[in-house]
Simulated scan of single mutants.
Amino acid sequence: MTAQLTLLDSLSIQFPPANLALAEPDGLLAIGGDLSTPRLITAYQNGIFPWFNQGEPIMWWCPSSRAVLNIGDINISRSLRKLARQAKYTITVNTDFCGVINNCIKQREQLEGTWITDDMKAAYIALHNQGYAHSIEVYNQDNTLVGGLYGIMVNHVFCGESMFHFESNCSKLAFWALHNHLRNHNINLIDCQIENPHLSSLGATCITREEFLAKLTVKDDQPIHPSMWNKAQLTDIYD
């Protein structure tokens, strides 16, 4: 098949095959459509995610190289293990999704600008309210939200979207907590989307688009326990 850029039909939530994505810019597959929950879930189930800036049309991507973390392959430094043993932080799941996404926006605006537009924020909050998107929170001893991450769960894969930290290493604590929470519920893969030094330091590696899409279609006979994403404090998660 020849790579091509597809203009999405507003009346259909279907996407073209991911292997039709352009080589330059790498992974751009389609533009248009909307950020409705059905379209977003269809996208993630097919290895596709939205990524665009304010004022641009919605752009949908499936890059040729995919950053992933296989559960069990996480790299934890001695300093991070020491920080976890100090028990300075409380780790929770799904207690403040809006706070996490707002802080991801805030940190990126301070550093380099954010791709989490108002429409993206509203769309992922809607995903959370419908049970698809989830967050990990890190609170300090003053009960202030100082780190966290959020993402979407599809096909027994956690698709990470963004993370933040306002105290050193708190995004890494959140990622480690997520890894162990997924491991404890027999989830085997975190989709990190695009490689960066921060994720690589934690053990993320790159696989081809074809390898990633194949992992998305693997059937898992172990059902996800319905309580996995209940609002809760996570305890005994660092080992």
Rank of each mutant, 00 (worst) to 15 (best):
I190R: 02
L8G: 02
G33S: 06
T208S: 15
V68D: 01
Q4D: 03
I74A: 12
K219A: 15
L7C: 05
L83H: 04
R81E: 02
Y89P: 00
G203T: 10
R108E: 12
A133W: 03
C104N: 04
C62H: 07
V138R: 07
H198A: 08
I13W: 00
T217S: 07
E24S: 10
P57K: 09
Y150P: 09
F49H: 09
I41L: 15
D239N: 07
F175Q: 02
G27Y: 03
Q45A: 08
N180C: 10
A84N: 06
L69G: 00
L178Y: 03
R66V: 14
A174P: 03
T114C: 07
G203E: 10
R81M: 10
Q86H: 09
F158P: 01
K219W: 09
L29M: 02
Y124R: 05
H134V: 11
K82Y: 11
I207S: 09
I187V: 15
I91Q: 00
Y124H: 06
M228G: 03
N143Y: 11
S227K: 11
Q107Y: 02
H198E: 05
E195W: 06
T37S: 04
I101G: 03
L216Y: 09
L127Q: 05
R183N: 15
G113P: 11
T6C: 06
I194T: 14
S227Y: 05
Q45T: 11
P226Q: 12
V68C: 13
L202W: 11
S10L: 13
G72S: 04
F15I: 03
S65C: 11
P223C: 10
I194F: 12
T2P: 13
L29Q: 05
T42F: 01
M1Y: 13
G113C: 08
S10K: 14
Y124P: 07
Y150V: 08
A204Y: 04
L83G: 00
K88V: 00
P25A: 12
D26T: 12
L189Q: 07
N169E: 14
L127M: 14
A84M: 02
H128L: 12
N169W: 02
I116T: 01
Q4Y: 10
S171P: 10
I194M: 14
N155C: 12
C98P: 01
I48Q: 01
E56P: 00
M228W: 01
W115N: 08
Y150Q: 07
S79I: 01
R81W: 09
H156N: 15
F166D: 03
I58G: 00
I74W: 02
Q193W: 12
V157G: 05
S79T: 13
